Amino acid sequence: EPLWIRPDAPSRCTWQLGRPASESPHHHTAPAKSPKILPDILKKIGDTPMVRINKIGKKFGLKCELLAKCEFFNAGGSVKDRISLRMIEDAERDGTLKPGDTIIEPTSGNTGIGLALAAAVRGYRCIIVMPEKMSSEKVDVLRALGAEIVRTPTNARFDSPESHVGVAWRLKNEIPNSHILDQYRNASNPLAHYDTTADEILQQCDGKLDMLVASVGTGGTITGIARKLKEKCPGCRIIGVDPEGSILAEPEELNQTEQTTYEVEGIGYDFIPTVLDRTVVDKWFKSNDEEAFTFARMLIAQEGLLCGGSAGSTVAVAVKAAQELQEGQRCVVILPDSVRNYMTKFLSDRWMLQKGFLKEEDLTEKKPWWWHLRVQELGLSAPLTVLPTITCGHTIEILREKGFDQAPVVDEAGVILGMVTLGNMLSSLLAGKVQPSDQVGKVIYKQFKQIRLTDTLGRLSHILEMDHFALVVHEQIQYHSTGKSSQRQMVFGVVTAIDLLNFVAAQERDQK
């Protein structure tokens, strides 16, 4: 057995438009009618409502009807409940999964919650491996369901041993009777949507819809739904939504950006999952974080739909894509998950301010006199920076000697690579993860907040409520011999709460 199987392995699926269902090699399930009293909570997966979006479509000038398939009504709160249950049931049916076995899954959280929910009911041990950027709410729900959680670096490539995929496979090879159901490759993922989600949409719309818009992560949702719609409703256009920084969209030119990270969760990847059939997507749109969270908040405030950030991405694209539809036509959007997962993220004004998705003037509360002053007023001194090749031991000596707790790590040209902190280095040394002679590049981390000289002290204040420091950066445009230009970030300084307090105190003292 291989040590790991690539999540982007070539698909062996034989589905073709027009091929009889009787030739399918898979076990198919028909939607079942729910009894009045459910035998367990797993029976509350599927049969989610279709809700008309009344205000947002009109606000953006849509002539067509805009409908939302509300997947956050599933038992675990997301569309991923469907595939989690289906993968477990299919693994039980073919004898792969037996009582007492362990389920391991690399996930952005929602599939993990679905699997942990099913594992709690069915009696399996469950280990979820997820990147650090995923919300604390997801972690809390997983723990409450009895799952064990392993976190991995957000910026690790999918084929790196440190990625959530790599760590999951390492655990599988170490733990007896453990299984990775593997949402990236498992046919049960798109089949769950082909058999149930798509049929529900067709039934709820009486077979009449002209466009379907869905955000894409593993691709199982859009693949399964689109294949069924292509068979039953061939005139329906399928629109895929991919965040900026991901590479799922086609044509490839759409993916060209210097951005590699994004805040919206559960969609987009740096590889093409095996289950994603991009041939059934008629057109791709890219979405960005700001519009995703703005539209998610709009869905909550104006439509009462308590959905997550990827739902915002989907609707932001839908109001663009559906401009081509006329009166009497219908566009369906998939709202994948609930706001429950993001209470401390985009639902929080403070978080939105820190990330730059909300401006101070958007909030009406009274601010102190210094709130709208610029960061450049602080008069920061030149920063202490270190090269990635310097040793951890030497870096600790320098920081202690100069009285700093942290320093930016830059390359020879001064471009920011990340940050090192005294606390992080000492804990890594004590844990045996690094040696004093190791290069400081081994303990770089990139989960820090950046701020510009033109940003306000109010925004800085919000950042420092949650973080010990902020890195002050400025952009530099560099022209190359080819005539092309590129933008790079340079370090201007490091600012802490002490710097802000000293500035405010000094100004008030001078005024007296």
Results as ranks from 00 to 15, higher is better:
G432P: 08
V315S: 08
L325Q: 05
G403S: 13
A506G: 15
N424H: 13
W371I: 09
F295G: 08
Q435T: 12
G328D: 14
M466N: 03
A413M: 14
G441D: 14
I238N: 02
G432S: 09
S437V: 15
V440C: 15
S287M: 11
G240H: 02
S310M: 04
T496F: 15
E324L: 06
V339L: 10
G268L: 00
F293S: 02
P336I: 07
V315C: 11
L453W: 08
Q447V: 09
E508K: 15
E290V: 13
M298K: 14
H462W: 13
K402L: 15
M343Q: 05
L373S: 13
V375R: 03
G441W: 07
G432R: 11
L325Y: 02
P368E: 10
I398S: 15
E265H: 00
E397T: 10
S338E: 06
R374G: 12
R330K: 11
A470E: 04
A321I: 03
M425W: 09
E327I: 04
P243Q: 01
P336K: 02
I451P: 15
P436E: 13
E360G: 15
G356L: 06
D455Q: 08
I247Y: 08
V332L: 15
G423V: 11
L429S: 11
D510H: 13
L471F: 12
H468A: 05
Q478M: 12
E377W: 07
G379L: 04
V494G: 03
V280C: 09
V281R: 05
S481C: 15
E265L: 02
V281D: 04
S481Q: 13
T257P: 04
A506N: 10
V495H: 07
G245N: 07
P368S: 12
V319T: 11
W284C: 00
G309D: 02
L422A: 11
M419H: 09
H480D: 11
S428T: 14
V472Q: 14
Q256S: 15
K320Q: 14
R278W: 05
A296G: 13
S246N: 05
T274P: 05
T482D: 06
I396Y: 11
D510M: 10
A249L: 04
P273L: 06
A292R: 03
M352E: 01
S437N: 12
N424F: 09
L501D: 04
F448N: 10
S481L: 11
S485E: 15
A249G: 08
A321T: 12
I416C: 15
T344G: 13
D349F: 02
R374L: 11
D282P: 07
D438N: 14
R452T: 03
F492G: 15
I272N: 04
R374M: 11
V275H: 00
Y342F: 04
P243V: 09
P336E: 05
Q511P: 04
P251E: 06
V386T: 12
Q354G: 04
I398A: 13
N255A: 05
P368L: 13
E465M: 04
S310W: 00
H394Q: 11
E324N: 12
R452K: 02
E253L: 08
V420M: 12
P368F: 08
K366R: 04
V409D: 01
K512A: 12
Q476D: 10
E244F: 05
L335M: 11
K320V: 05
Y445R: 08
V420K: 00
G268T: 00
L248G: 04
T391W: 03
S381G: 14
F293A: 02
A301K: 04
T421I: 14
I416G: 11
V410R: 15
S486Q: 13
V443E: 11
S461D: 04
M419K: 10
F357N: 03
M490Q: 15
Q487P: 11
W351Q: 01
K512E: 14
I247E: 09
R452L: 15
I247Q: 08
Q329D: 03
R278A: 04
E290N: 12
D510P: 10
K355S: 09
S437Q: 14
T261D: 06
A311S: 15
E365Q: 13
A296K: 02
G266Q: 01
D411W: 12
V241I: 07
Q326M: 12
T391E: 11
D438S: 13
V420F: 14
V315A: 14
V440G: 09
F492K: 12
V410K: 06
Q476H: 13
V332H: 00
I398G: 13
T395N: 09
V332S: 03
N424D: 14
D242A: 02
A497P: 02
V491Y: 08
Q354Y: 04
A407D: 03
V386S: 09
P336Y: 05
K433D: 02
T294K: 05
G418D: 06
C307F: 05
F293Q: 00
E401T: 11
Q435V: 13
R350W: 15
P383R: 06
L347I: 09
F346N: 03
V241Y: 05
K512W: 03
G458F: 08
D349E: 14
G458P: 07
A505F: 15
E252V: 13
V415R: 09
L453K: 10
E401R: 05
K286N: 05
L299K: 04
D242S: 03
S427I: 11
E263C: 08
A296Q: 03
M298C: 09
E263V: 05
E361S: 14
H480Q: 14
G356P: 04
S381R: 13
L384I: 04
A322R: 03
I334G: 02
F404I: 12
A413Y: 12
F357V: 04
E401N: 12
P336D: 05
Q376M: 11
R459K: 14
L500E: 03
T260S: 15
T260E: 14
T279K: 13
M490S: 13
V333D: 06
V280P: 09
L335A: 04
I238M: 08
S481I: 12
V410Y: 14
T454R: 09
T456S: 09
T456P: 12
I444C: 15
D337T: 04
G403Y: 08
F295I: 07
Q439E: 14
A249I: 05
G240I: 00
D411F: 08
S428W: 14
V440I: 15
I444S: 15
P251C: 07
Q439F: 15
G483M: 15
A407E: 11
Q354S: 12
S338H: 05
P243K: 05
V409A: 11
T385N: 12
S287F: 13
G304P: 00
G393K: 12
S246A: 05
D362G: 12
T482Q: 10
V332G: 02
S246C: 00
S338L: 01
A296I: 03
F293Y: 05
I398M: 14
R297H: 01
K355Q: 12
R459W: 11
T385M: 11
M343C: 05
P388E: 07
V434F: 14
L399R: 03
D282I: 07
F271I: 01
A301D: 15
E250D: 15
E258Y: 08
S381P: 14
E397V: 10
E365K: 13
V494K: 04
K446Q: 11
K366E: 13
G418R: 04
I463G: 14
D349T: 07
A249Q: 04
D282Y: 12
V473Y: 14
G304W: 03
P383A: 07
V280F: 12
M466R: 11
P273S: 01
V443N: 09
S461W: 08
E250N: 15
E291N: 15
M425S: 04
G328H: 08
A301E: 10
V420A: 12
V415H: 11
H372T: 14
W370G: 02
T279Y: 15
D510I: 05
V440Q: 00
V264F: 02
E258P: 14
L399A: 12
E244D: 10
T395V: 11
G393Q: 10
V339H: 06
D282C: 13
I498C: 03
G308Y: 00
V332T: 04
K320P: 03
E508H: 10
V473R: 10
V495M: 14
T385G: 13
D349M: 02
I398Y: 13
G308W: 00
T454G: 07
G304M: 00
H474L: 08
K286C: 00
E377H: 06
T482F: 15
A296S: 09
N288F: 09
S348A: 11
K320R: 06
L464I: 12
S313K: 06
W369I: 06
S338D: 06
I239S: 04
R297Y: 00
I396M: 15
V332D: 00
K449D: 13
